[in-house]
Design a protein around this nucleic acid. Structure first.
Lengths: 195, 195
DNA sequence: CTTGAAACTGAACGATCGTTCTTTTATGTA
DNA sequence: TACATAAAAGAACGATCGTTCAGTTTCAAG
């Protein structure tokens, strides 16, 4: 006989189902997940999960998960604070990297870094840069730019003489675009994955 | 009168709906999305979307989106290749950062980097490190470790004399744990978001 | 033109969805 | 113990889901 679950276990069961199936369970399926024998018992749990922000109701009153339910990572404090106890883990907010990093999906791209011109900015060859197209670069932003027919990653800087593209590598010199300058997009994030 | 949509437009409409509502539309809703007047017309489209890998059917024959539909970013080539034409953009594979970076959600945490001990490895203060708990560190992995009561980020190295923790900063010296060593987890990725 | 295949329409159907209602059980308070 | 409140069980209901079927339209090949 399935024993009584607490909220945390129910959320975990829901999360597992959602990750596995890609959709919310029906009331009948939740009845099974939560160990109830009546669908009506599920309604109460759903109400509480809506109140606590794990679920929300859409336009037609339809159930949908919030990012709090679908997120895959826990955000903790600083490295210096080390790892939390299991209880503290439970408290930590779940977060979605997609949601955190990508603001405008239709205008966002990932590019692979090839050179070492931004090495002193902590951007190494092989890293991925998350680039947002169509954003106006501010002074000091890192941009993907086409200068004189070549695409590169540089700091975008504006001074009295005009626009300057600075590498983050003492081995290279700043560039002042002569013929043409196209700013493809602004680097919003850097992602490095270890194999 | 809504004109005929091609596959790409339908996928885009589905993606928008899924992102907005957090769930798949019903056949009736898809009928509206795709501009049909009969639900039966939707069935054909769904069959084709399943065949092309945008949708899949779960255990009970229920419709679920694939990651190809729900992903939020396009993965392009190298920075040097620059930006693709809209047609090439369309070809690029959509990808989910969550899926790409997080292998075991229940064991993965994000920590904020505080010191500069790994600066030469391209890990700066303020960066986020994606740490996986319970993974056995291999030689050269970056780990979050507690040495003599302090948590730090270091290279994990094993040599004839035992375990050594190396910083990536010439200003600091390698550490040989004296009293205790706890490896909290292995760094699987580094994420830097520009404000 | 005729023919055939595919796509679409429109109506209908059984299944199942989420909700509602009443009854039963569990739990805490005086 | 008695009582009040909340949670869960169990049955029932209308709504809507995805599917099916027969008929129509579209369009390209012969």
């Amino acid at each position: 006989m399935p024993r009584v679950m607490n909220i945390g276990e129910r959320v975990r069961a829901l999360r597992a189902f959602y990750r596995r199936e890609g959709r919310m369970p029906t009331y009948e399926e939740m009845r099974g997940l939560f160990g109830y024998r009546s669908k009506n018992a599920v309604a109460g749990v759903v109400r509480r999960l809506c109140a606590t922000g794990y679920l929300k109701r859409g336009a037609a009153g339809r159930l949908a998960p919030t990012s709090r339910l679908t997120a895959v990572t826990r955000l903790l404090g600083a490295v210096a604070a080390g790892f939390p106890s299991p209880a503290e883990e439970e408290m930590a907010d779940m977060m979605s990297l997609d949601e955190y990093l990508v603001e405008r999906p239709e205008a966002t791209f990932l590019l692979t870094v090839s050179g070492d011109s931004m090495i002193e900015a902590g951007i190494q060859p092989g890293d991925l840069v998350l680039v947002e197209k169509g954003r106006i670069p501010r002074n000091g932003d890192i941009v993907v730019a086409q200068v004189d027919d070549e695409w590169t990653l540089k700091y975008f800087r504006r001074d009295r003489e005009g626009i300057r593209l600075d590498p983050a590598n003492r081995a290279y010199a700043p560039i002042r675009p002569k013929r043409s300058l196209v700013v493809g997009g602004v680097v919003r994030a850097v992602i490095r994955k270890y194999i």
